[in-house]
């Protein structure tokens, strides 16, 4: 029983930490309709900066706002390249992502490990004072849960502001935004800045959790985020807009649970991705079928 619980707690933690990537993708892909590949670079950027700061002895909690800022800067780059220079959306993201690969290595020097003696947000004095009696596994879950829920509430609140409504409008109806004499380019940049700040923070949390930065850790994160967003929004298709953030958190957890299940079944690595793909398909198909069924009954 405890094994089961430990696995579930570990998977939930992974899902929560990585759900910040799906927050980012939700803003760019779902709201702005912007396929942003910066993600594969801004995710390790957050981890690289965090690894360097942690080994440099900075307070673990201070690394989080810094990761947000550097992530925002990377989003700003993609935004400026796209809006001001007029490079196509996909290519703008690719340019920043490619540059970030080198930048990340410049920041961290090489793949970097944070030793056990260095405290992370999960072992910092403040965390220990509050949750010190719990094992590390549970501290990780609680701390990530608090951070993710806090950010979710902030994002939800932002979407209800005038500025947030405009951001949402850019993806749906650019003409409307322009007719309100709002610069749609500026809104796109803002969206990219927000999105990559979240992605970078996710990288930072992974660095705290894994105690390491690897140059290749960003590979495929865009695809992960996209899958999480689509799983989440498919499962919650009929739910009102604001809950989109909740949906993508659950999408992220479901994705990680699929991988965990595939690993736990002891599947060979070569088949892992195939099985994961089949699991997604089943989930998505169930979501669609349930909706059709509901329509018939209605």
């Amino acid at each position: 029983m405890s094994v089961l619980l430990d696995l579930a707690v570990g998977t939930l933690t992974q899902g929560l930490i990585y759900s910040l990537i799906s927050f980012g993708i939700y803003i760019t892909y779902k709201i702005l309709d912007f396929p942003d590949l910066t993600v594969d670079g801004s995710f390790p950027l957050g981890a690289a900066v965090t690894a360097v700061l942690l080994t440099g002895g900075m307070d673990p909690f201070l690394t989080l706002p810094i990761a947000l800022l550097v992530g925002a800067a990377s989003g700003l780059c993609t935004g400026l390249i796209h809006v001001k220079i007029g490079v196509r959306d996909l290519l703008a993201g690719i340019i920043t992502m490619t540059a970030l690969f080198s930048i990340n290595l410049q920041i961290a020097g090489s793949n970097l490990t944070v030793d056990r003696g260095t405290s992370t947000i999960f072992t910092a004095p403040a965390t220990m004072a509050l949750l010190g009696s719990l094992p590390l596994l549970y501290r990780k879950l609680i701390v990530s849960f608090v951070i993710v829920v806090l950010l979710k509430l902030i994002v939800d609140a932002y979407f209800r502001t005038k500025n947030g409504l405009l951001l949402r409008a850019v993806g749906d109806n650019e003409t409307l935004v322009t007719s309100l004499s709002v610069d749609k380019g500026r809104m796109k940049i803002l969206g990219l800045v927000l999105s990559n700040a979240f992605v970078s923070l996710s990288g930072a949390l992974v660095c705290h959790e894994q105690r390491s930065f690897s140059a290749t850790m960003g590979t495929g994160q865009m695809v992960f985020g996209l899958a999480a967003v689509i799983i989440g929004t498919t499962l919650f298709r009929k739910v009102s807009f604001v809950k989109g953030t909740t949906a993508v958190i659950i999408g992220s957890i479901v994705y990680k649970a699929c991988i965990q299940a595939a690993i736990s079944f002891g599947l060979p690595a070569n088949l892992l991705k195939l099985i994961t793909a089949v699991l997604f398909l089943v989930i998505l198909a169930l979501g669609t079928l349930r909706e059709k069924g509901g329509a018939r009954h209605a």
């Binding site: 089961l4 696995l7 957890i253 479901v254 649970a257 965990q260 690993i263 002891g266």
Partner: peptide, 12 residues
């Protein structure tokens, strides 16, 4: 779903 998936793997 999450619990089941986790449970399946850990029963061994």
């Amino acid at each position: 779903l999450v619990m089941c998936l986790a449970a399946c793997g850990s029963s061994k």
